[in-house]
Structures are given as structure tokens and as C-alpha cells.
Nucleic acid binder design. Structure first.
Lengths: 188, 188
DNA sequence: CTAAACATACCAGATGGTCGGTTTGTTTTG
DNA sequence: CAAAACAAACCGACCATCTGGTATGTTTAG
């Protein structure tokens, strides 16, 4: 993405560029479009250079996935801090994180988790992340109502990906807020 | 799937076999595994034979998608009949249809809609189906609460795909029923 | 000078797709 | 009713392209 042509050799920058470009391609054209050539071209590197940073394609894709997961993680941590209420705190952060993913073009952990159902390792990564995160907030976010709210957030996010680009942003924010409100009422 | 070796020439049967095999491969190994060769082999036809029925791969995949969509459609119609209550009728059928998709191995409109976010035509097909269906049940299923319930069903279905195969069926049915109950309380 | 960071060249395999031909079923004709 | 004429269904070989990956060379940094 960032044109780092001036600096002579900055391996970490190149690595970041590869990660970002791969993520962007995956998001815009789907995972099958993420070819070594395409990623290398987008990052202004040759295929050989790319394969120097990542031994093979699987490693590349998994690194991207791991990276996006880390971004999601930190974003959620950020949202957690601004929430005074205990009950359902993680669920609210989860909902907001995925809501932002749709609106902001910058932070996009989008298409990858979708197409990742092919690779069992990536499925495992996601499952583990979700499970550990859930265990961490077991006391505040265990109820089934909260689980439903999170599932709804997933569904809403999915719908945003599948719908025709002319998505009516109207009502979307309202829906998000309604989801949030679901996390506030105590279970009966 | 069905060994229709005896009958001499039955183009419609072959076409069905191609559709079914493609759907199964897509579900079991993901869309990238749906290659002309693989589908042809699975249906006991040569690649040439396959390309006689479908001019190119895109046509094949879209035909599969259209077929699965029709299956979903009829299943929902079936569920609609058994529901005496008007309010939220379609939403309940929608939820149950996706719940069955997970449990039953037979009816599986699974992996395709997932990976379909690449092809804009398939995105459009899904959007149109959803929109038209929603318009048809506008009077009974318009409320935002019902929309959330459907989104949650989507999320739950997605989770079933992404989670490790050892999904705990425990609690799943209970969650479904809780979603159903969400469609019964009137809006405030 | 040594090792890391890249580029270049190349390869074996797979993929989507084309093309000419062969088999099979249906219609026409005598 | 039989044979010829026609069209649909299907096969098998072939091809250009692209894929991930390797092996080897060249440049740069410490």
C-alpha cells in the first residue's frame, strides 16, 4: 500500500506491505484471487521476494489471518476500556468492532474469516480465539441472550458483505444500537 | 451421485448429477475445489460432457447456487404451512431452515453462499431473493426485532461452519428455540 | 566479508476452455 | 415399417495460461 520505494532495504516494511496487500486483495476479490503473483505485484516486490518472507502461500495467508485477528483483538480491548458497565461488556465491544469493520474502509478483517472455512488450521485459530476470549469474559458475558446478540452481529456483518454495494446505511446504525440494547437487559 | 449407468442417454439426470456433485464438493472442500475435472469425475462424465451442459465454469457455479436457492425456497414454503401464527411466520421458517441445514447432511446450501461474495452476480441473486421474500412477508415480518432474529440465525449458521467439527450439539437446539421465542413477543 | 534481502529464470502440474469426432436418440421420408 | 437425415449428448485429445514452488544469481546492510 504505502510506497516505500525510497528507503533501500526495510524488510519489516515490506512484510507489512505484503500483509496489507494480501488482506486487501482478499477483501476486494476474494481469497482465490490472493495469488503469490498478485500479492507480490501489489506490494512492488517479485514473487521471489515474497517467498523470502513467507516460505509458502499457506504461511502467507495464515499470517494475514493472524494479523487481522490481532487487529480485532486490540480494537476490542480499546472498546472494552470505554465501557463502564460490567454485564455484557465484551459482547458490546464485539458488536461495535464488527460494526466498525463495515463502516471504516481502513480496518477490514473482512473476507478472510469468510473463506477460511476451507483451511482447518484457520478455522481452529478462529475457534481458539473466540473460545479463549469468551472464557476470559465468562463472568460478564456468559448468558445465552448475549450469545444471540453476538450471533446477530455476525449475521449483520455477513449481510453487509453479501448485499449489493448500494447498502442502505439508513437503519444500519439503528440496528447496531438495538443490538447493543439487547446486551443491557438482565436475564429473567 | 446416483449411478445412472444403465440408461443410455438421460441428459436431465446427468445435469442433476453434475449439480449435486458440484454442490457436495463445494460443501466438503470449499469452492476452490470445485474444478471442472473434479465435478466431471464425480458425476462419471468427462470434462467435455460437462462443458456441453454448462458453457463455462461460472455458469455451472451459478446454476448450483440457483438450485440451492430454490431448495431453500421450497423448504421455507414447507415450514410456512405448519405455522399457525401470523406474526413472524417467515422469520421462524427462515431460522428453522438454516437450523436444519446444519443438522441434516442431506439438504445443504452451505459453503456456496459463503464463498459467493466474490461473484457479484451471485451476490445479486441472494440479495434479490432475500428482498423479494421479505417484501412478500412485509406485513408479518417487518419489525426490526425479527430482522435481528434472522441475523442471529445467519450468525449461528456461520458459526456452525467455522467451528471445529466437534461442535457441541448441546445447547444448539436450545439456542434455536430461544431464537424462535424471540419472534413471538410483540414489539413494544 | 558474511548474511540477509531481494531479483531472475525456470519448472512441473493443474486449470479452464476449444475442437473435431463418435455415439445415441429422434424425426423425416419413401 | 425401414432407412436415411438430422440433432443432441458425449468423448478424448489438445492448448494457452496460470499456479505454487525451487534453484541460483545479485545487491545491500552491518
Amino acid at each position: 500500500m504505502t510506497e516505500a520505494h525510497e528507503r533501500k532495504k526495510q524488510p519489516e516494511i515490506v512484510r507489512r506491505a505484503l500483509l496489507d496487500c494480501a488482506a486487501q486483495i482478499s477483501q476486494e476479490q476474494g481469497l482465490p484471487a490472493v495469488t503469490l503473483q498478485a500479492v507480490a505485484d501489489a506490494a512492488h516486490v517479485t514473487k521471489g521476494g515474497l517467498l523470502h518472507h513467507f516460505p509458502n502461500k499457506q504461511a502467507l495467508v495464515q499470517a494475514v489471518f493472524h494479523d487481522l485477528l490481532k487487529q480485532l483483538d486490540t480494537q476490542i480491548d480499546l472498546l472494552l476500556e470505554d465501557d463502564p458497565e460490567s454485564y455484557g461488556r465484551f459482547t458490546r465491544a464485539y458488536i461495535r468492532a464488527f460494526a466498525n469493520a463495515e463502516s471504516e474502509g481502513a480496518c477490514n478483517w473482512n473476507a478472510l474469516p469468510l473463506s477460511s472455512h476451507t483451511d482447518p488450521e484457520m478455522k481452529a485459530m478462529w475457534s481458539e480465539w473466540y473460545a479463549s476470549r469468551l472464557a476470559r469474559h465468562a463472568e460478564s458475558d456468559a448468558g445465552p441472550e448475549l450469545g444471540i446478540a453476538r450471533y446477530a452481529a455476525d449475521g449483520l456483518w455477513l449481510a453487509g458483505l453479501l448485499e449489493y454495494s448500494g447498502v442502505e446505511a439508513t437503519g444500519h446504525d439503528a440496528l447496531i444500537e438495538q443490538l447493543i440494547s439487547l446486551t443491557r437487559k438482565k436475564q429473567t
